[in-house]
Design a binder for these strands. Structure first.
Lengths: 150, 150
DNA sequence: TATTGTTATACTCTATAACTATA
DNA sequence: TATAGTTATAGAGTATAACAATA
């Protein structure tokens, strides 16, 4: 149970991170379901608000999804008037995406609820550890996704 | 970028943890492939070594898998003589599982390689943060899996 | 010819239900 | 009848390839 290299001081990283991720997603699900959103729909709403994107492919890449996979998501969100999708006049192959006011409102509602659940979990962690954890998690996330801010 | 509640101090936890988990699994894959192991096969080898289990159902639960899903895995590992699976004489419905010496050896080899990869990643994190991160990750993992040691 | 968005298809992973053999 | 293990089936999620529109 020590930290000597080559020993067994802990379960494999992936063996903890992957199940934790599954559990976090499962905890979010009721919130998302209550608003008729899939995880990917929520990811789209979240990301669109922060960084307006010009193409669907860029959006897909930003949320680490396949470009073919978000199409049904966009269809749904558009039909519910949570976002608009119009051809770019300057290049009519491109679809300009933007959140509607209702889309932004929904996003805020859901995000707040999601964050509340996460805070309840993190509350159980000592404050000092919490900060280091979030900082390191953010760092490892960036590095693992191709460290854009290397 | 502060910690005021309700603000946007960070991406959602799940939005970082899930992709990080995917990346960690992807990083492990070459190691596992090199030894002809799936992720579940590795999980089985890892867990069997630590805690000898009397039933397949208990093993499945321990690694958070479906009991029907590990059967093909056990078939494969047994045919490769990495583990043995014999009926319990006292209750012939039950299969007693145990790692063979080769199974244990393979598990050690793979685990060492996996850990090396993880260490290379963790090396980039300041030592103080690293410890807090691993401690907190372990804690959150336990809690999220039904906090057996609550 | 190359690119954006779209559709269709196939493949993997996972969950559910039905079956057998023991008890 | 209940339980351990097994098999078969169906469903969700994902990736690949082919297609239409525009450049």
């Amino acid at each position: 149970m020590n930290a000597a290299p080559g020993n067994t001081p802990r379960p494999d990283l992936a063996a903890m991170v992957v199940p934790l991720g599954r559990a976090l997603m499962a905890a979010e699900r009721p919130v998302l379901d209550a608003h008729g959103l899939t995880m990917w729909a929520y990811a789209v709403l979240s990301h669109l608000d922060e960084t307006p994107l010009r193409t669907q492919a860029a959006l897909a890449e930003a949320i680490h999804a396949d470009k073919t996979r978000i199409i049904a998501v966009l269809d749904d969100l558009e039909s519910r008037e949570l976002l608009t999708r119009r051809p770019d006049p300057e290049d009519r192959r491109v679809r300009l995406l933007s959140l509607t006011p209702e889309g932004r409102r929904l996003r805020d509602t859901v995000r707040t609820a999601v964050r509340e659940g996460e805070e309840r979990l993190l509350e159980q962690v000592p404050a000092a550890d919490r900060e280091a954890f979030l900082r390191t998690l953010g760092f490892l996330y960036e590095v693992s996704q191709g460290h854009p801010g290397r």
